[in-house]
Simulated scan of single mutants.
Amino acid sequence: MTVFLRSKTLWPFKHNDAYWDDVELVAKGGEEPEVHLSHEPANPKVGDVVTIEARSLTALSDVLIVVRQPTGAELPRTEVVAGRDGDWYAWTYTTSPLSEVGTHEIMFSAAGDVEATATFDCAPGAPPPRGLPRAQYERTYVLLPPDADAAWALAVVDGVWDRHRYTIGSSADDAGIGDLDARRVIAVNPGKWPSDLRAFFKEYYPGVEYVAIEAETPDELTQKLKQL
């Protein structure tokens, strides 16, 4: 661009020098570049990483993208990656994992006082599933029938406790539940249950290894458990 400055002197001579102080060239009537902001995922949760994209039909320099959390603190700044998509100029910014619930503000700036803002809401993360084992282990549950008294429970202790530390109880659900790779149920006198125990575990707790033991007395149960 070439700018010509012209003047007219009050007392012209053959040679005249002209000076201007604090000259400023101001562009008028131009439109400010338009910037479109978007983010993915559309509905982030705590722990998610959000990718923010800024797009403009104007080439911009010194691009900066900042995300302010609900508490006012900024997320750690990372590199803004520039690219092209046809006629569009694009700048991408990826956040660190979100840690606050609420409205986050996206602030875009570039040279020439170009600015744009947008917001997105962060929802709480999904709670961890309950009941998962801390670590995988093999569990054997000695399931006593509904009418078994303490003598039968003591018979199980005498038969397997010192060697195996098997779990002892009288709940079929307790025996089958658990996200374990190895679950074994030793059902004592299963015929005393009101329904078919083998079918029960197959339907409601698939994957359980089912073993049935018949014993007339607690002493007989102790001996049979020792033989397992």
Results as ranks from 00 to 15, higher is better:
R6P: 01
L10D: 13
K14H: 11
N16T: 13
V23S: 05
E24A: 12
L25R: 14
G30F: 13
E32W: 05
V35G: 04
H36P: 00
L37Y: 06
P41V: 13
A42G: 06
P44N: 09
K45Y: 07
V46I: 12
I52T: 02
E53Y: 01
L57Q: 13
A59Q: 12
L60G: 00
L60M: 11
I65A: 03
A73K: 13
A73R: 12
P76G: 09
P76V: 07
V80D: 05
V81L: 14
G83K: 06
W88Y: 15
W91L: 03
T92R: 15
T92I: 11
T94V: 15
T95H: 05
S96D: 13
S96P: 01
T103C: 02
H104S: 06
H104R: 04
I106L: 06
D113Y: 10
A118Y: 03
D121M: 11
D121K: 09
P128H: 12
P133H: 08
P133C: 12
R134P: 00
A135F: 12
Q136V: 05
L143Q: 00
P145H: 11
P146Y: 11
A153F: 14
L154M: 07
V156T: 07
V156R: 03
V157S: 07
D162F: 08
R163G: 01
H164R: 12
T167G: 05
T167Y: 09
G169E: 04
G169P: 04
S171A: 07
D173E: 12
A175V: 09
G178F: 05
A182I: 14
R184E: 15
G191I: 00
G191S: 09
G191F: 07
D196I: 12
D196W: 11
A199S: 11
F200Q: 00
K202D: 14
Y204E: 12
E209T: 14
E209D: 13
E216T: 09
P218E: 08
L221T: 02
Q223R: 15
K224S: 06
K224F: 08
L225A: 04
Q227H: 06
